[in-house]
């Protein structure tokens, strides 16, 4: 399975999480992000870990998919680990080379940051794994609905997001091809001196942007031809239904939050 497709892709196992209202899942995830960011002890992260793994297990989606969701950011995590580890000078010195030294406290903090990030990435993937993009969009629209009063248009925002999610992979594919085409004309980013690289970037960006505009124009024609008008009323195929399970789902996160705050 390739990474690109994992972005915004649901894996249907029909678990109870899949059946939840997208709004409850979005709310739950937002709470989860806050809880993770507020957690600052091993005890707390331990509690979160137990909670997360239980919830993930009940989705019946193999754990490896969750891990794969974090994989694209592995280098960032490694980077954070190294920077955090080396910047904190607390506790016993475990290892030193010249001006660099690794302290026990640093190692602890580095590991802590990476674990937090790992849970953040794997657990929030649950949202896209258990919700089809359409339902996700509708859920987002629902969550944003209260902001209508502030002059915000949830339909526009979700339309924007869904079109972006739809076209980003297509445009990335195309950028790859243009990269290869220019490399075939002797402009290989890997083999050129830095000064030339800037010029190369133009040869990549101009075609990619030109093509994105072309696509946008085509898309507008296609949407208008299908009768689309901004802000016109629409019916919905998938309905949002808030049930007892949804309340329970959100409540679980609230309880987790309180527990973490009390610890």
């Amino acid at each position: 399975m390739n990474e690109r497709l994992l972005l915004g892709r649901s894996i249907d196992t029909g678990s109870w999480v899949h059946k939840l209202d997208a709004r409850s899942k979005i709310t739950g995830m937002l709470l989860y992000v806050v809880i993770i960011l507020l957690s600052n002890s091993w005890m707390e992260i331990g509690l979160i870990a137990v909670f997360s793994i239980i919830v993930m297990a009940t989705t019946r989606i193999p754990l490896k998919y969750f891990i794969k969701a974090a994989k694209p950011l592995r280098y960032l995590m490694l980077f954070i680990f190294i920077v955090q580890s080396l910047s904190v000078k607390e506790g016993d010195v475990l290892w030193s080379l010249g001006s660099f030294s690794l302290h026990e406290g640093g190692l602890r903090l580095g590991a802590f940051s990476v674990i937090r990030m790992l849970f953040l990435l794997t657990f929030t993937a649950l949202l896209t794994f258990t919700t089809t993009p359409g339902k996700l969009n509708q859920g987002l629209e629902g969550v944003l609905a209260p902001f209508k009063k502030l002059g915000l248009s949830p339909d526009r925002i979700t339309l924007m997001i869904s079109i972006a999610l739809r076209f980003i992979p297509t445009i990335l594919d195309e950028a790859q091809i243009i990269l290869k085409a220019q490399a075939s004309r002797g402009a290989d980013l890997k083999e050129l001196p830095l000064k030339e690289k800037a010029r190369m970037l133009v040869s990549l960006l101009v075609p990619v942007i030109a093509s994105a505009f072309r696509r946008a124009q085509d898309l507008v024609y296609s949407m208008e031809a299908r009768g689309f008008r901004m802000d016109a009323p629409r019916s919905r195929y998938h309905r949002l239904r808030w049930g007892a399970a949804d309340t329970l789902f959100v409540a679980m996160f609230v309880v987790l939050g309180i527990a973490v705050a009390l610890l």
Partner: peptide, 16 residues
């Protein structure tokens, strides 16, 4: 690359 010229599909889209 100089000896083998490769023309991709829709090559006009690579002009800049």
């Amino acid at each position: 690359r100089r000896r083998v010229g490769l023309v991709f599909q829709f090559p006009e889209q690579q002009m800049f």
